[in-house]
Amino acid sequence: MRKWRERILVGASWVAAFGVLAVVGVLVVFLVARSAHILGPQLLFGDVPWTRAVFAGARVFDGIWPAVVGTLTLVALSAGIAIPLGLAAGIHVSEYAGPRFKASVTLVVDVLAGIPSIVMGLFGFSMILLLRRTVAQEAKTGLLLAAVCIALLVLPYMIRATQSALAGLPMSIRLLGPSLGMSQTQTLRRVLVPAASRGILSGAILSVGRAAEDTAVIMLTGAVATAGGRGPQDLLGKFEALPFKIFVIAAEHNTAAELDQGFGAALVLLTLTATLFIGAYLLQRSLERRWNN
């Protein structure tokens, strides 16, 4: 009886593991099948030669290149805000905060993590309304606002990942720095953070992935369907982004060919996030190698 139960359990875990693979596989195959005939430079750049679009800033109206650049810029900006802030907050909560402060920050971080992204978008939108009514009447939604709101959205992942990676370190590692006469800051910088880097980096990877795919925040804070056929030109301007592009195409397409472009854009977004993940993995590997040599 016990043997059977074990076999069923093992079987179920195999099914679950393969289930995940199968779902991802079916999704990718479906996307590729729908967009295979349009995959190529045409999808990204339309009729504009790619060298002119990439290097000379030529306008692209039929391709998704402006949205790709927009998404990459948005991800870089929001990661640039959220990762250092989240790292610092996580370190503070784990290493310096007293138990009371720690408990209240943890609660706030949990609440922040539970806020739906559409609410975060509305928050950004109302911030602009408030600014317009008070100090800056010219304020409008744009790239910077979207990046700040996205950063707020992913901040809890970063804080939590840092906090739990540091909290999970064994006491022996914690004693190591002080026993060598290191100050608290030296211990943190030279021993604890490098030892926790794997966990911290997975938080950063999660944050970057989330920043790339979120649609609800950016549609209220500055993303537009077409932004003059170019990537973001300045921090306060409107911009195109892949998730919003996909949403617009799915909602408003007129022909089957247009819808196929939406599937192509989805595949590009998936590839983009996969590339970011691989990049982050390689960064982690090189950090570990640097740590070892």
């Binding site: 022996s172 004693l175 190591l176 002080p178 026993s179 060598l180 006469g181 021993v191 030892a195």
Partner: peptide, 15 residues
């Protein structure tokens, strides 16, 4: 701590 060094019971080697 720099002056009064200590050798742990179990070696605390960094990875």
């Amino acid at each position: 701590r720099r002056t009064a060094g200590m050798v742990f019971q179990n070696p605390n080697v960094l990875p």
